[in-house]
């Protein structure tokens, strides 16, 4: 079996365990047979998600972050659907809040990175712009 697939399986199991602990922490009564089944469904969803992420052309950190946040998202949505099957607004609100947080983090990282690269390029031009243009 490929090393990357073993990684994915380990990540999936580990993250699902965290989701399980988190949900159990929020509401211990939710720990039931139905929830066990739901976790099995989440596992399939997360596995598919991890496989999708692993095939994308992203950096290692991005993949890990996406896996963690993606797993959390799937876990939260599953929890909401399980606990409040008729409360669509809560589900949508959670989805939007999650999206906004993720967008904020992404924009902040983008801005910082862009500034760093601008500085590096400026320095590279100072350092050897003339030499390299020859």
């Amino acid at each position: 079996m490929k090393k990357s697939y073993i990684n994915i399986i380990l990540w999936t199991l580990g993250l699902n365990f965290l989701v399980f602990l988190f949900v159990n922490f929020i509401d211990p009564e939710i720990y039931s047979v139905e929830f066990g089944r739901l976790l099995a469904i989440i596992s399939i969803g997360v596995s598919a998600y991890c496989l999708y992420i692993s095939n994308t052309d992203l950096g290692k950190t991005s993949k890990r972050l996406l896996t963690v946040f993606g797993t959390m998202l799937i876990g939260f949505l599953a929890l909401l659907v399980y606990k409040y099957p008729k409360n669509i607004i809560a589900t949508v609100a959670m989805f939007i809040a999650y999206g906004l947080i993720w967008l904020g983090v992404w924009v902040a990282i983008e801005i910082i990175q862009r500034k760093h690269i601008e500085k590096i390029n400026k320095r590279l031009t100072e350092l050897n712009g003339e030499d390299n243009d020859k």
Binding site: D57, N121, L124, L127, N128, D131, N132
Partner: peptide
Amino acid sequence: LKKLKSIKREKNSRLLGTLANGEKIMISRG
């Protein structure tokens, strides 16, 4: 670095360096 012309961000968040001879090289963000 004396032979590195510039660094550019790719769409997939990776960094690509352009060398003095025009060759491209992948740069890890780490």
